[in-house]
Design a protein around this nucleic acid. Sequence first.
DNA 1: GCCTACGATGGGAACGGTCCCATAAGTAGA
DNA 2: TCTACTTATGGGACCGTTCCCATCGTAGGC
Lengths: 340, 340
Amino acid sequence: MTTPTHQHATILEVAREAGASKTSVSRYFSGERERLSPNLQTSIAAAAQRLGYHPNRMASGLKGGRSRIIGMLVADIRNPFSVAVMHGVEQACRERGLSLMVCNTDNDSALEREHLALLTSYRVEGLVMNAVGSLDRELQALVEQGTPLVLLERELSQVEAEVVGLDNARALDLALDHLQARGYGELLYLSEPPGLASPRQARLTRFQQGVAARALAGEVHCQTLGETESLNRAIGNFLARPGTLPKALLCANGNATLAATRALHSLGARLGETGLLGIDELDWCELVGPGITTLAQPTEAIGRAAVECLMRRRDTGGRTMPARRVHFQASLIPRGSTCR
Amino acid sequence: MTTPTHQHATILEVAREAGASKTSVSRYFSGERERLSPNLQTSIAAAAQRLGYHPNRMASGLKGGRSRIIGMLVADIRNPFSVAVMHGVEQACRERGLSLMVCNTDNDSALEREHLALLTSYRVEGLVMNAVGSLDRELQALVEQGTPLVLLERELSQVEAEVVGLDNARALDLALDHLQARGYGELLYLSEPPGLASPRQARLTRFQQGVAARALAGEVHCQTLGETESLNRAIGNFLARPGTLPKALLCANGNATLAATRALHSLGARLGETGLLGIDELDWCELVGPGITTLAQPTEAIGRAAVECLMRRRDTGGRTMPARRVHFQASLIPRGSTCR
DNA sequence: GCCTACGATGGGAACGGTCCCATAAGTAGA
DNA sequence: TCTACTTATGGGACCGTTCCCATCGTAGGC
């Protein structure tokens, strides 16, 4: 019945309404307000108010070459850790007047490629991602075009970009020291398959080194976490094996902790008697049984740091800086699951 | 050292490289590929490949008036329920070749206004939101401008838009029937302050009606969930009160369930003996004590439905359709927390 | 064999901003 | 009083697309 009453007002209409030039209106809305006389300012403000004017970001992004958008490629949006980091990224963006465009790749490499192309097509001014697949070529092209890139956690050998993430070696040392101090002597490290994801690789490696250095017995079990039965079997075998020392599970991330807790639950194991320590703090860790000991990551800070890197790189103009790694320290939250 | 090798290629450069006109290249990239002769198609494809061309969405959004972006305003990005819905929205968008721009309002009404203006300035082709504050005026303006709007859960009386969400009345009936069948006779309903959020209001009202209809004893406690001590006190009082019938807590959403579980945990209450039923299913509900009984919402479906409404409304051109409400049914997942 | 129609292609004017440059008026210095 | 410089404002080209409107063959109908 009713058609849209009026379209969006343009800068020209505001200019006419205010009796000013479009240049002045443009200035008013792009942070050069103080260059205008007070009179002009008020009449522009009034005109814009009357017409319900909102600057068209598509247009300004086009001419100015600045979209004011930061892109973020998240491997798994349903992982609370990712969401927490994203929250930090978002806040940092907001403080700088940037918008965030988030794409979820669902750990799918094809989807990742697709979404990367999408973000590129919006000419994002920076990209934060935790890489899934092997997009080295595309990413390198992006970097060479001058788009700042920050990798969360997972690094890609081929691409020149900053990496922001946990100090995995120290984190694993912390975990192993704690388990050893609590008297656990046989450890099972549980992780998703490391594949190309470098933090998984880094943690795994350090686990193996650390176990050897401390003269502990350490095993590793990697699998896709969806397959419940095979996980139950693996953990069951580990627990059933004759051994003199107390046993503990060490989980490489939040998903692994969830899967391990479920498995222990269904096997009827008692937390504490069987040790459990997870990397990533989750809402519910304090609530399950005697509580689950975790290594908390400073998620918010990681997100903010990512944006800071982006901005620094943008301001120094592209590739002038060497790629760096920004490390954050995990903090141990001891609970009953590592207390016999 | 090295400056960006080359900027983004434009349609004109591709055209030159392919020996075609920019119109043809434009057609190639905007779904009119079949209008071009096979020869031209291959040479354009080759040229674009060589130059690493990606269409500039800013420019096409400008001229065509279609940004191909759907905006989403989420009240609390750290709520797993919101994330799950968002995942559904995202998938539905992707299937239709739309991008999603998500803004988190952190339950802050000022931030919500700000982000709404932002999304408007990108000329989003549709908006999905769960409203926090009272943006009725702004939203009404948006709708009149022809932007399709879908509200998640919370409805706004003043604005003509579809609402997608849970059938709250049925959900509460389901919960109350279950609690009654399990023998709980004194109930405490726990919620964040309803304020303007209509689903909170709807659930609360139905709780009160339902309790009366079933001749149960029902109390309501509303508070901001961050304040732990006052929550503990309220729940402690409820449990300490002399009474003949078993007592149970009914939590209005996932956040309330988390807060209640923490409170019960710190009060040393035994789940089951004290009943606990939460709306929203969470990863960890099966793991805490004997498991927490929940009402699961079909999150994915809700998200997809929101996008469907958006598209339907867009295709019928603005306001031609009356505002509707799309209801989804919750499903009960019985666990030990409602078993004495 | 001419006219029409249609399919394939290209030229060029928007779209709504930004930003370079020009202009005009005032102000200070000599 | 004249020049030099600053400040407040406006004109207009341009950003990379889309899309309307040619243009140009060529095939079919008469």
